[in-house]
Write a protein that binds this DNA or RNA. Structure first.
Lengths: 219, 219
DNA sequence: ATATATACAAACAGCATTGTATGTAAAGGG
DNA sequence: CCCTTTACATACAATGCTGTTTGTATATAT
């Protein structure tokens, strides 16, 4: 009973959906092709027809969510807004994305807490790195523009600011996905992000001096 | 050829060292007891004598590095320094610890990128959570003290500030361990942390207003 | 000095998984 | 209308790992 081309694509998507579910539930390495097949309602034969092996399947589900993020980045950075403003917009949209899109959250949960990056799976780390670098490039440019426009407060450099934001965003997602999702958490994160980005406009050099004046460091 | 008590403890430590190495190399799930035994120069029998199974072994190596961190926390927070100052000190010491102690870096690399938190391994996540909560409790207290003393800049709350720092620190370690270690990275991170903590003293509410005054948000 | 518990090594049984090879029915092109 | 290719299902062979059991030499307590 051979399927038509569109039916075939449908099973392919079903397999990927099933893989997401199984990966989240029992982790990538324990997920056997048999279990994924059962979840998808097919046999392993079907999976091996569409995907060479498990890591290709993982790669496929990772790439499937890439498009969404590219759209978010484009919307935030190519709007022509003030640099620090677009950085904030981007961050807010990322929070929104993770708060609302189960798909994105699922895949990232796999990437963060359900996968061991060794052997053939190293490739998956490379994909992540490429994503990170694309992200970095975008807001590195934004921070350099902000620096050139004199919008960064004294003490900040484009380098330290972008590093700070990068760490904040990674850590945010890491904590979020490693523990359970809480609706109020998103609000706290939004508030934190807003303060953080506003902080990039502040004269932190002066603030640091203020402290050492108040209470000198004991030798 | 029965060993003496101290010899036995020595083998126990050798097994844990071997486990660290093997876990980092090939991940927790692919690491068979046989491979760990070979690395340690013993047979599986020895491992099963000292540890019930793999997750207990993992638990043991995680707990082995806990002591170091407790000491760091104690030194930073129980010194009686100004709250925001002790937060900064603590962060710096964490950076220092990861920059210098291979042991710590190895175990955290396992925890972050070499382990899937499913089934029995969920326990390991619980240990992490306990650690996080202990950490959180410490600098939540510090931020509340800072808030009470009026050292937090307008716009910040103890809640948003501690969330920000927590995310920054997690993200920092995550990025650090997920990619390769770079000596200059530590310097950048130190600079970023210094700015970030100084930023907690700044009036971010005013800074945010400054931006919206400069260029009003398009509706 | 002997008995017992200790600290392992070696052997065993059993299952789960992987990749592939083969079978097959229908789709789609000529 | 037939032939080839597609889209799977089924069957097979091989491997690797786990937990346990059994064996054994020796430290240590009595």
């Amino acid at each position: 009973m051979r399927r038509t081309k569109s039916e075939s694509e449908e099973t392919r998507q079903r397999i990927m959906d099933a893989a997401e579910t199984v990966f989240v539930e029992i982790g990538v390495s324990r997920a056997s092709m048999e279990k994924i097949a059962a979840e998808a309602g097919v046999t392993r034969g079907a999976i091996y027809w569409h995907f060479a092996n498990k890591q290709e399947l993982l790669g496929a589900i990772i790439r499937r969510v890439h498009g969404i993020h590219d759209a978010v980045v484009a919307r935030a950075f190519e709007g022509g807004a003030e640099p620090l403003r677009s950085v904030l917009d981007w961050g807010m949209e990322v929070i929104e994305l993770f708060a609302t899109d189960d798909h994105t959250r699922k895949v990232y949960k796999i990437v963060v807490t359900r996968c061991e990056y060794v052997g053939e799976m190293q490739e998956a780390l490379v994909w992540q790195q490429e994503m990170h670098e694309a992200m970095d490039a975008n807001f590195r440019r934004a921070f350099e523009a902000a620096e050139a426009d004199g919008q960064l407060g004294r003490g900040w450099t484009a380098c330290s600011a972008s590093m700070t934001l990068r760490c904040f965003m990674s850590g945010m997602l890491d904590n979020w996905l490693r523990h359970e999702f809480d609706a109020t958490l998103a609000e706290t994160l939004r508030a934190a992000l807003e303060c953080l980005v506003a902080g990039f406009r502040c004269d932190v050099a002066a603030a640091a001096r203020r402290e050492s004046a108040t209470r000198p460091t004991p030798a």
